[in-house]
């Protein structure tokens, strides 16, 4: 069942086009990975979906509702956003997650809100840390707090900006496994930007390749071919099946590099400064 639909999204930043003609949709219970090189507009696209950035053209529909016509509180009830960076402060884990109920809280915190936070903490196995200050947590734990906060917004769609970028391997796998099980278990959707193709291949159902602000390719694991990766990233790779999961590795002879220092890749970095704003 379709959950989120993006129609003809265009976004300019100070007159410079960043996203152009973006169309895609995500079903319930589906995990979508937005892939692409640095500066392709991945994070910008994610922020357009919950109107942190206001696109000049296009619409984002969740069910029948047009996100850009809703109030900011109502948007936060539909889309939970997990940013790349969270500033740690002297707030207990429980209170930090309770903050996610903000769009629902009118004046005071109800018992219902506290129960939801408790359930979300248990769901992410954070309940033993609930009274710890978040400035005492490890990177993985802090990321989980951030995800728990998005969950208690009770959204239809989770947006995650590079959820694994600063985590070690074990935490990466754990976070993505958790996200996936929530998406499947609660029948919601998740959209995440990612750098690591192999972890993306492992946990996502669907992929979007973004290049220079437009969608270069879109589809399930079958669409991830050496050709498309060569085109999007400018890197020659092989895709190999391993235990039913595609694994990508670069075709690159290290001996050649060691003997040829002048060889260099010509990635396009022109938009990077803009996207990182």
């Amino acid at each position: 069942m379709m959950n989120l639909k993006v129609n003809g999204l265009n976004f300019n930043y100070n007159g410079i086009p960043v996203l152009d003609g973006i169309n895609f949709c995500v079903d319930k219970g589906e995990l979508l990975a937005i892939l692409g090189p640095n500066g392709a507009g991945k994070t910008t696209l994610l922020k357009c979906l919950n109107a942190i950035h206001k696109p000049q053209h296009g619409s984002v529909l969740i069910g029948e509702r047009d996100v850009f016509k809703l109030s900011s509180d109502d948007i936060a009830k539909l889309l939970g956003y997990v940013p790349q960076r969270v500033e740690p402060s002297r707030l207990s884990v429980f209170d930090a997650v309770l903050m996610g109920r903000k769009p629902h809280i009118k004046w005071r915190v109800r018992n219902h809100d506290i129960c939801i936070v408790d359930a979300a903490l248990k769901r992410l196995s954070l309940n033993h840390l609930s009274l710890r200050f978040i400035d005492q947590l490890s990177g993985g734990e802090l990321q989980k707090v951030s995800i728990a906060r998005a969950l208690v917004q009770e959204p239809e769609v989770l947006l995650l900006d590079e959820p694994t970028s600063s985590l070690d391997l074990k935490n990466q796998l754990e976070i993505l496994r958790t996200v996936r099980s929530i998406v499947k278990g609660h029948n919601v959707s998740a959209i995440m930007t990612m750098h690591d193709l192999n972890t993306a291949m492992r946990y996502a159902d669907k992929f979007i390749f973004l290049k220079n602000g437009t969608i270069f390719g879109c589809g399930n694991a079958k669409c991830v071919t050496p050709e498309i990766i060569q085109n999007v990233y400018g890197v020659e790779v092989e895709v190999e099946q391993r235990n039913g999961c595609p694994v990508i590795h670069p075709v690159e002879d290290l001996n050649v590099i060691d003997h040829n220092h002048s060889h260099s890749h010509n990635h396009s970095h022109e938009n990077e400064a803009i996207h990182n704003q």
């Binding site: 922020k47 919950n50 942190i52 109030s71 900011s72 509180d73 109502d74 948007i75 936060a76 889309l79 939970g80 956003y81 997990v82 940013p83 790349q84 960076r85 969270v86 500033e87 402060s89 707030l91 209170d95 930090a96 903050m99 996610g100 903000k102 769009p103 809280i105 951030s146 906060r149 998005a150 917004q153 947006l159 900006d161």
Partner: peptide, 20 residues
Amino acid sequence: RWNFNAIEAGDETAKGLGVK
């Protein structure tokens, strides 16, 4: 007061929670 808590967690977190 909730907006201040959210802003202390970072502008992006706050915006994601519907804080102007």
